[in-house]
Nucleic acid binder design. Structure first.
Lengths: 232, 232
DNA sequence: AATCCAAGATTGTTCAACAATATTGACGAA
DNA sequence: TTCGTCAATATTGTTGAACAATCTTGGATT
């Protein structure tokens, strides 16, 4: 039956619980982009009924973590070129806006600096995942400058989608190391109160990152179609 | 093979249909903020089962059109002071950002001017609802400058919440007429390519609108609590 | 009037079924 | 072989009834 980890799952929480489990597994790369989430096996595996699983699905669909094709099923989202473009359209708007018009308290500045230091340490120790984490944390913290929960939520969704993009790339190249310095410069400018310059630099940064990511993604798709040709 | 040419695949759409019906009724003010959406009566009225209605609920919850209180039910959202503040936090970020960095084609500019003209006509003919519509259309069109579907979606949600705010005010004062001219000025500056000034003016506009709306809302809440005191 | 408690009502979840659509695999024709 | 056709099968979408957990209501007691 329903075996909640420690009995915390009281009445009225299992749907959210299931959604959270799937969210975590997808974020961890345990469920890879494009893979199908069939209802009956998942119901059996999670110990819930189809109805509650389907309800969890609809929340995940609304978060665009998962894609539902009518009468076909739901699949782990596998963002492609278009989705990456959309991701950067969003980031190019809200991140510089946060830099320009967000509330910059000394506390928050300190938090940003802590994060860039973490990124530098990660680069020094050569840990790509730690660098990716620190990078995402930094840009999330930038959006937090807006003070808006909705924008923060949107950014969280976008960053989750970015993780999916990385998961869908077989070869995860060192995508972050050259951006650590730009993050350092960003925080430096923020500390100096040069918001205009910070915003412009951030926009340039995002343009470059998008371009590089699209190149990697295009190569990935070529590789994949090449394999398909070879196989068929 | 299935021929989706005319057959609208009746099978897989009732959940979305129900969600859309409720969305429309709420937007029209037919279901007022704070009112409870009981499951059984609604199921009977809409002719669907509880399970599908509940699925529609979860999508509406994710759109924050509706609030779910565990074991108590779902209610039409009734935005208060905090929600209004959050609305304007969002608008103060993404609207000026769209003005500063959006893509300004002559086509789009023409669309904006058409909308402000509509607003002016509405003011001349004294139609408050038409003015409100035109105002929302204009600000939606501004966000459309970003080219981002996600931001557009967020803005749509925000504007829907604004409608709920107006619906929750018993006395709907002429909130829009003094802002028509500012919208005219905004479009004028955009046409002149003065984005910086347009963005700053827009931010000032949003500050004022928020302040005025909060005054009205505070008065409304005072009125309501006063009635409660008188009644109890 | 205030508090407590049991009966009723409502929500959260499960189960079993059926309808509609998709997928599969076998079969036959060019 | 290779391609389409078609029936058999599997999966999704929706329904209705049931039960457990929680909230609400009304009255009894003090």
């Amino acid at each position: 039956m329903n075996t909640p980890a420690d009995g915390t799952a009281e009445h009225a929480h299992t749907t959210a619980w299931i959604a959270s489990v799937l969210r975590t597994r997808i974020a961890a790369g345990e469920l890879t982009p494009g893979s199908k989430l069939s209802e009956e096996p998942l119901c059996a595996a999670l110990g819930v009924s189809r109805n509650t699983l389907r309800q969890a699905f609809t929340t995940l669909v609304s978060e665009s973590i998962v894609t539902r094709i009518p009468n076909r099923g739901v699949f782990v989202a596998s963002p492609g070129v278009d989705e990456v473009r959309e991701i950067y359209r969003v980031r190019r708007m809200i991140e510089p806006a946060a830099v320009l018009w967000g509330e910059l308290t000394p506390q928050v500045l300190e938090g940003l600096e802590t994060i860039v230091q973490r990124a530098q340490q990660a680069r020094d120790s050569g840990s790509v995942p730690a660098m990716a984490d620190a990078n995402q944390a930094l840009h999330g913290a930038v959006v937090a400058l807006t003070g808006s929960a909705s924008l923060q939520e949107l950014m969280d969704r976008v960053l989750a989608e970015m993780r999916l993009v990385f998961h869908s790339m077989a070869s995860a190249p060192d995508f972050h190391s050259h951006y650590v310095d730009r993050n350092v410069a960003l925080v430096k400018r923020l500390r100096a109160g040069e918001r205009q310059e910070a915003a412009e630099g951030l926009r340039a940064y995002l343009d470059e990152a998008e371009a590089e990511l699209l190149v990697h993604l295009g190569a990935e798709q070529d590789r994949r179609s090449g394999m398909r040709q070879r196989a068929g």
